[in-house]
């Protein structure tokens, strides 16, 4: 097997990001974080590049992951959701986004996109979490500004919104 002398974009993958299909050339060492930013999804942040801060969290086939720990070639065929794709029909904010605004959870905002993605996944798995369950759910997303209280408030409030919304649909 011949080895490349330098890193070259020699691989092609197909992915879906926020419901948009991408056919992209990548190189072996490109992380999913690098790729998403290159494709214009700048909400995905470089915080530590070692998987310890969660600023790069996206949903990979529905599960929150640290995109700095994943190489682009690993996600061929996958579906990715970033916070840019969260708003319903691209306009109406998702209830988690609304709740973050209303409770004053974001301060500097750098961790917020990742935190929101983790919260969205958490609430889809556990629609009525306790504060303790929320704290465990976001344990991989570090926030240096908030001390997490308003973040937990926001996720609690989003759970109620989602519950009310779903109840509304049932009527």
């Amino acid at each position: 097997m011949p080895l490349h002398e330098r890193q070259v974009p020699d691989l092609k993958i197909k992915i879906s990001v926020n419901d948009r299909a991408f056919d992209v050339e990548i190189s072996a060492g490109e992380t999913l974080l690098d790729l998403l930013r290159r494709l214009g999804f700048k909400s995905v942040k470089h915080g530590c590049d070692t998987g310890n801060c969660g600023a790069c969290t996206v949903l990979l086939d529905g599960r929150p992951v640290a995109s700095c720990l994943i190489l682009a070639p690993q996600v061929d065929g996958s579906t990715i959701l970033t916070v840019e794709g969260l708003a319903i029909c691209g306009k109406q904010l998702h209830p988690v986004q609304e709740a973050f605004i209303e409770t004053g959870a974001p301060q500097c905002g750098f961790c917020t996109p990742g935190m929101i993605m983790t919260a969205v996944s958490l609430l889809s798995e556990n629609p009525d979490p306790t504060r303790d369950e929320i704290r465990h759910g976001i344990a991989g997303n570090i926030c240096r500004c908030s001390g997490y209280v308003k973040v937990v408030d926001a996720i609690e409030s989003a759970a109620k919104k989602l519950c009310d919304r779903d109840a509304g649909h049932d009527e």
Binding site: M1, R6, A28, E30, L71, Q74
Partner: peptide
């Protein structure tokens, strides 16, 4: 961006 040169899916 990491320095890996090749990625092969077995």
């Amino acid at each position: 961006m990491k320095h890996f040169r090749q990625f092969v899916v077995a």
